[in-house]
């Protein structure tokens, strides 16, 4: 999984039936580098059932594992938000805490 920051939402009227009623977010991958939480190289669109808000950090699952989420059984997705992050610790240091 990756740490990702929600940077937007995606709205589409015409879509595959499996995406009806499903929220889509734009998420930017983040990594820990030199003890800091910094943006990574990928930006992707993911399904979100947890109500992740703009600017929130989340845990993202990618690939066919994304469809293992019970609510994604009928959605042909390859990325899903599985948790909203409250806190990240790396190498014994606090690197992120939800405000």
């Amino acid at each position: 999984m990756i740490i990702a920051k929600i940077v937007g939402t995606v709205v589409a009227t015409v879509k595959d039936a499996g995406f009806e009623g499903k929220k889509l977010v734009l998420a930017q991958a983040h990594v820990i580098k030199d003890g800091q939480l910094v943006p990574g190289q990928t930006m992707l669109v993911a399904n979100d059932d947890l109500g992740a808000g703009q600017g929130e950090f989340v845990v993202l699952t990618q690939g066919s594992s994304a469809r293992m989420a019970p609510s994604m059984k009928n959605t042909s997705t390859d990325a899903v938000v599985i948790a909203l992050i409250d806190r990240i610790d790396a190498s014994g240091q606090l690197v992120f805490k939800r405000s």
Binding site: I32, V80, A83, D86, D89, S91
Partner: peptide, 23 residues
Amino acid sequence: VIGRIEARVRLPGLETQRIVLLQ
């Protein structure tokens, strides 16, 4: 294993799953 995350809001089934940060 270089760290860990805390997350109260999770998809069903993941409530007690430990998630760690890896390098």
